[in-house]
Simulated scan of single mutants.
Amino acid sequence: MVSPENEKHWGRMEYIAIMPHKSFEIKDGFCDEDGNINPSLPVSKGTIVFAQTASGTLVEFKMFYSSEKEIETIVKMGFEQGIAACLEQLEALFQENKI
C-alpha cells in the first residue's frame, strides 16, 4: 500500500479457508516488506461471502478484532479510507465482469 504522502506499507493476508465462488476466511495484518507480521499492530480475522442476487452479487465483508482498542488503532491509521478504496476497486471489477 502506498499512502498519499508516498509512504509504503505492507500487509500480509493468510487464507484460512476457501470455498470457491462462495466465501473465504482470512487472517490479515501489517508486516514488513519480507512478510514478517508487525506485532505492535492489530491482526484481524475476516470472512468474505459472495451471494448471487437478482441484480448481481452481494458481498458481505466482516472483520473481527480482539478488542475495541485494536479497532480504534486501525481507524486512526486510515482503515475507513483504505477499505473504501478496496471496495471501489472490487465494484469496478464486478462492473467490468472480470470476476
Rank of each mutant, 00 (worst) to 15 (best):
M1K: 10
M1H: 13
V2S: 05
V2E: 14
P4E: 13
E7W: 08
E7C: 10
E7Q: 15
E7D: 14
K8S: 13
K8A: 12
K8R: 15
K8Y: 07
H9A: 08
W10A: 00
G11S: 09
G11W: 01
R12N: 04
R12A: 05
R12C: 07
M13Y: 07
M13L: 14
E14W: 10
E14Y: 10
Y15L: 14
Y15G: 03
Y15S: 06
I16L: 15
A17H: 13
A17W: 06
I18W: 12
I18F: 08
I18E: 03
M19S: 11
M19F: 10
H21V: 03
K22M: 06
S23F: 08
S23Y: 08
F24A: 06
F24G: 04
F24E: 05
F24M: 11
E25I: 04
E25S: 10
D28H: 14
D28K: 05
D28Y: 13
G29N: 04
G29Y: 06
F30C: 00
C31G: 06
D32A: 07
G35F: 02
N36V: 14
N36K: 15
I37T: 04
I37Q: 03
I37G: 03
I37K: 02
I37E: 02
N38E: 09
N38I: 14
V43A: 01
V43I: 14
V43T: 15
S44I: 01
K45L: 07
K45R: 15
K45W: 13
G46H: 06
G46F: 10
T47G: 06
T47F: 09
T47E: 11
T47M: 11
I48P: 02
I48Q: 09
I48R: 08
V49C: 02
F50T: 02
A51V: 08
Q52W: 00
T53K: 13
T53G: 07
A54V: 07
A54H: 11
A54E: 15
S55D: 12
G56N: 05
G56T: 02
G56S: 03
T57E: 02
T57H: 05
V59Y: 03
F61G: 01
F61P: 01
K62S: 14
K62D: 11
M63A: 13
F64K: 15
F64M: 12
F64C: 10
Y65V: 04
S66G: 10
E68C: 00
E68N: 08
K69L: 11
K69D: 13
E70V: 05
E70L: 03
E70N: 09
I71C: 07
I71L: 11
E72S: 08
E72K: 14
E72I: 07
E72Y: 04
T73M: 14
I74V: 15
V75L: 13
K76M: 07
M77G: 05
M77T: 03
M77A: 10
G78R: 08
F79D: 03
F79K: 06
E80S: 12
I83D: 02
I83G: 02
I83A: 03
A84Y: 05
A84P: 00
A85Q: 13
A85M: 11
L87V: 01
E88L: 02
Q89S: 10
E91D: 06
E91L: 06
L93S: 05
L93W: 03
F94G: 00
Q95P: 01
N97I: 00
K98F: 01
K98M: 01
I99H: 01
I99E: 00
